[in-house]
């Protein structure tokens, strides 16, 4: 067992528990986008950041989904430093992917009411949930990451229709951008107000071949336009 301090509370958790699991267990909510209980933690969305310090050491922000509980650690899940980073990240998410209801809900919860960046409509936030779902739960490994940096995207090997893919739809089921679409935001008001702007959640290269939603509601509407 490991003893640590969580938001001023002395707690004891089992060895190997992550900070996110510990916080959840004690009823403290930490927002996440790339985390799922059934999948291995990935630490890419950076929303689950918490401030940790060891006695006498300098504090730093770490992703709680990947950081193991350690003896004597002091953890703060909603400190000013954490909130500042979290809010700006949510603003960045809104600026990139305003069509996700999950993200719009997060924005409301964290009082992010405006977007100061140039508005984009990219949809995919590269959280990697679909990739891990495909590999770990569906045992297919049909999709993965391609390229690096700003060019990074999710695709099948060589962008060809994959033989490994069984069209199970697990990727869409788990996608925070596909699962719940918020169609409200537009250039003038990136923070949601109505369901106006319906566009397909998939990237172009999937075509309909990779999509189990046949016909896809969004694709249908797009064709009609």
């Amino acid at each position: 067992m490991v003893n640590l301090t969580l938001n001023g509370l002395e707690i004891t958790v089992e060895k190997g528990t992550t900070l996110l699991e510990a916080a959840k267990f004690y009823g403290i909510e930490i927002p996440t986008l790339c985390y799922d209980e059934a999948l291995s933690p990935y630490g890419a969305c950076r929303l689950c950041l918490v401030e940790v310090s060891k006695p006498g050491g300098r504090s730093k922000l770490v992703s709680s989904c990947t950081y193991p509980a350690m003896e004597g650690l002091v953890v703060r899940t909603h400190s000013e430093r954490v909130m500042k980073a979290r809010r700006l990240l949510i603003e960045l998410y809104l600026a990139t992917c305003p069509s996700s209801k999950t993200i719009q809900d997060l924005a409301s919860k964290y009082h992010v009411t405006k977007v100061r960046f140039t508005q984009k409509h990219e949809d995919c936030i590269l959280c990697g949930l679909c990739v891990r779902m495909c590999e770990e739960q569906m045992q297919a490994k049909a999709i993965g990451f391609v390229n690096r940096g700003a060019e990074r995207r999710i695709s099948t090997p060589f962008d060809a229709k994959s033989d490994e893919c069984r069209l199970c739809g697990g990727c869409i089921y788990i996608c925070p951008a596909c699962r719940l679409r918020c169609q409200g935001p537009n250039e003038e008001s990136p923070v949601c107000n109505a369901c106006l702007n319906l566009s397909p959640p998939c990237l172009d290269q999937y075509d309909d071949a990779m999509c189990y939603m046949d016909p896809c509601v969004a694709c249908e509407l797009k064709i009609q336009k």
């Binding site: 960046f117 690096r148 060019e151 990074r152």
Partner: peptide, 20 residues
Amino acid sequence: KEESCGRCFSCREGISRMLE
């Protein structure tokens, strides 16, 4: 921007936006 691995949202998107 080109050399970031692109895994962390804060790095990938943060650098792109700073550049912007």
